[in-house]
Simulated scan of single mutants.
Amino acid sequence: MAFLNAMNISASGLTAQRARLDVISENISNVNTTRTEGGEPYRRRTVVFEPRGKSSFQEIFSRTSRGGASNQRGVIVSEIKEDESPLKSVYDPTHPDADENGYVMMPNVDLLKETIDGMEASRVYDANVTAFNAIKAMASKGLEVGK
């Protein structure tokens, strides 16, 4: 049932991109958060992907050519980490979190970058939906052959 493996790969991509979109929306919603529960400004978070079932191409090819099942393939979210780039310093002496010189440490979130990342994640999500639907249509047509 190779089409089921292909569907699982697309589904793992859908899940991973949904997690990425969740993190991007969290970053955008905290673009002006100068104080978190820890007392520090919000730090941008990024999603790290990792291939599921790490095998070389040769291993997969030899296993499937002998009729064996391939390992579970796809992508997983291995980690959501904080971006360690420097925070932005903005002069605003009226802000409650301003230091003695009137500067406020703002989050390291760049709204333009987050918007572009969100558009990319949305396009990748759409591509996985298209692939999933194509696989589903091929499987359906394959089942009609026996009629």
Rank of each mutant, 00 (worst) to 15 (best):
Q72T: 12
N108L: 04
L4H: 08
F132P: 04
D99Q: 08
Q72D: 11
S140F: 05
N71C: 01
R44E: 06
A11T: 13
F132D: 06
S78K: 13
V90Y: 11
V23P: 02
S65A: 07
E100K: 10
M105H: 05
Q17R: 12
S122L: 08
N128S: 07
I28A: 12
S25I: 10
S70V: 09
F57Q: 07
K81D: 08
T130W: 00
T130C: 03
R18M: 10
T34L: 09
L14W: 01
K81Q: 15
I80T: 10
K141A: 14
K88V: 06
P107G: 01
R66H: 01
P107H: 05
N108R: 03
E26V: 09
V23H: 05
D110F: 02
N30Q: 11
A139N: 14
K88D: 04
S10E: 07
G39I: 00
F132T: 03
N71W: 00
V31Y: 12
E50F: 01
E59W: 01
F49M: 09
K54E: 13
N32S: 15
V104H: 04
A134G: 12
L14Y: 08
V48E: 10
G68D: 14
N71P: 14
E50R: 11
Q72L: 07
P41E: 02
E120H: 06
T34A: 11
M106Q: 13
P96E: 07
T130M: 07
E82Y: 12
A134C: 00
S10Y: 04
E82R: 15
A11K: 07
T33A: 13
N128K: 05
G142H: 03
G38N: 11
R123F: 09
T34R: 05
